[in-house]
Nucleic acid binder design. Structure first.
Lengths: 192, 192
DNA sequence: CGAAAATTTGACATGACTCAACTGGAGTGG
DNA sequence: CCACTCCAGTTGAGTCATGTCAAATTTTCG
């Protein structure tokens, strides 16, 4: 069950967990399954858990006053989900996270995570790596959002996340890019 | 000289550095002054230092193929600047950072920072807080970029960073918001 | 098969951009 | 103190990219 997580930790830190460490990690994380369309987090909730995706796909989005959804994150296996702001500050989130496919997660509460930081140094390392990678990726996204045309944003996305093109329908990708599904459809037609 | 940094550390971690710790921090950071318009970092450079702003104001921007500048960050006293991706991966940066006002910085190289993490636990704590805050702020910015109109992005910016309105000219703020200076001018006219 | 979801297409509206001209300071040097 | 330049900001006209709405078509899947 937790093997994918051990593997992930090894991959991003170079550290192989000892057996007692694996045990500690195993006890800190709770497995949870989500059916397609089921919420992991809803607007107004406090995000009490971060989750590691073992299997499946999720999306994180906000809903504007007109009811339109705007996708902030698409995530698949080996990605982490949750709203950090809500998780850390214990404030109600403005986002929704739900399962796009049937999904298996490993959940960890804040207190348990901080406990783990003490007990398993590799977790702290992993957290730093995650933050670093996340921060690099999101900076690129901001740059793309303010300086690229819709067409270029799509090209950039397709180059960086080719696997997502298979996994998520176009209207979600359009929303992720900040454009309408119609515009994306026309861009793709052109590009061929 | 370094007092502002000690104060910053205390503010964000609650930790007051001991005298020996202050000494370690002082030795790790190198003061540097920039004249207005002077570069801290240029496209193609490797970003060897992160810097804490003691005094002044800077901007970080990319330049597109048409020569247009797109502002990723505006920063003033007590902000950190640098390109994390380049700093961590030692790859050439795609951004420029220059001084908008005459600026005083404290620089720290990667190796020295990691050394400090070992010697002064409060620095590690501070780094985590910084990452957390940065990650929350930038997530909001992505959300704004993909789901708000130009007008709403400006309102949001003005509400979150009122001090920047005084400090930076409108065309920089427009660029930060991903709109042209003309559009911002018209938005402001309307809003009155 | 049939229903729901996803995608495409067309006509039209509009927000934002471009380009160019103009206005109004804030220096600067004679 | 004036003339000059530089820079920021404003304004207008025309254009373009993208959005909106509605309908048609294709794909997915129970």
């Amino acid at each position: 069950m937790h093997a994918a997580l051990y593997h992930y930790i090894n991959q991003y830190t170079g550290v192989t967990l000892t057996n007692p460490e694996q045990e500690l990690v195993k006890n800190a994380f709770t497995p949870k399954k989500l059916r397609r369309k089921q919420y992991f987090l809803q607007e107004g909730d406090v995000c009490r858990y971060l989750a590691f995706i073992l299997k499946g796909a999720t999306r994180q989005y906000s809903v504007d006053e007109k009811g339109a959804e705007h996708i902030l994150q698409l995530a698949v296996e080996n990605w982490w989900i949750g709203d950090r702001e809500s998780y850390m500050m214990l404030t109600p989130t403005i986002y929704n996270i739900d399962a796009w496919e049937d999904t298996e997660l490993l959940l960890i509460a804040k207190a348990d995570l901080h406990q783990l930081y003490q007990e398993v140094p590799a977790i702290l390392l992993m957290a730093r790596q995650m933050d670093d990678r996340h921060s690099m990726a999101i900076q690129r996204r901001v740059n793309a959002a303010i300086s690229f045309s819709a067409e270029k944003r799509y090209a950039d996305f397709a180059a960086t996340h080719p696997e997502f093109l298979q996994r998520f329908p176009q209207h979600l990708i359009a929303s992720y890019l900040g454009i309408t599904k119609e515009t994306l459809s026309r861009i793709r037609k052109q590009a061929i």
